[in-house]
């Protein structure tokens, strides 16, 4: 029998089963905790820090996506300080690489853009870092524009945990961190990629996109899940 814990989020009494995370229970109770690396169905990594919440009695903030619930815990998911921090995190994601919404395939379908709007970010106080990064369009069906990557690593996890190909991983570290395929080779030359399109499907921004889509035409929600599986299967006569 599962143990049920009752506790509070933003003053609201909620209940969840042992082993659930604060994020999951919040979602079930209609409390929105922002997050960009979190995606249901793959392992959480607590990296984007947007879901940081206060837990009464703890001096440290905790990532809601990885914090297991406990009886009687008192969670503050929304406060002025948290809002300010979340805005800064969002700003950091924008200034790290070269996000230009106006010319992005994901314009109007972008979780980062939604996040900025939702948190009321109107401009960036932080200076842009403006790194010179690559675009890899060597894959037949898809392309990756590292200018738009926020390193949520959903692509890496979905490729490993769901597709089982582990084509994607990360290379280098710090600000130099990039997602990469196989031995850091062009995506089109990857021998492990199954062209399933899952990575493209889960990308929160316009970093991974289908070729041939124009600006603002990259919506991933208005079409059946993983259409490319069918395309590839047909090509291979399966």
């Amino acid at each position: 029998m599962t143990t049920v814990f009752t506790f509070r989020i933003d003053g609201k009494d909620v209940a969840g089963s042992e082993g659930q995370t604060v994020m999951e229970v919040a979602e079930e109770n209609g409390i929105d905790i922002p997050g960009l690396c979190h995606l249901e169905g793959i392992h959480d990594r607590g990296a984007c820090r947007l879901c940081m919440v206060e837990i009464a009695g703890s001096p440290k903030l905790a990532a809601a996506c990885m914090t297991k619930i406990a009886e009687g815990m008192d969670v503050t998911a929304h406060s002025d300080v948290l809002l300010e921090y979340r805005r800064t995190v969002t700003e950091m994601m924008f200034v790290e690489r070269n996000h230009v919404c106006a010319v992005c395939v994901a314009n109007n379908h972008c979780e980062l853009q939604d996040m900025a709007e939702g948190l009321g970010v109107t401009h960036f106080d932080l200076p842009r870092i403006s790194p010179k990064v690559d675009i890899d369009a060597s894959h037949r069906l898809f392309a990756i524009d590292h200018n738009r990557c926020i390193l949520c690593l959903r692509c890496v996890r979905v490729c490993d945990e769901i597709e089982g190909a582990h084509t994607w991983d990360v290379m280098h570290r710090g600000l130099e961190t990039r997602v990469q395929t196989d031995m850091g080779i062009p995506w089109g030359e990857s021998t492990t990629c199954t062209s399933c399109g899952k990575c493209v499907q889960v990308c929160p921004t316009g970093a991974l996109f289908e070729k041939g889509r124009a600006v603002a035409r990259g919506s991933k929600t208005k079409r059946p899940f993983l259409p490319w599986m069918k395309v590839v299967a047909e090509e291979r006569g399966l």
Partner: peptide, 10 residues
């Protein structure tokens, strides 16, 4: 944000 004109920055 400097938007499109900023694309030259890198």
């Amino acid at each position: 944000t400097s938007n499109v004109p900023g694309m030259r920055n890198p």
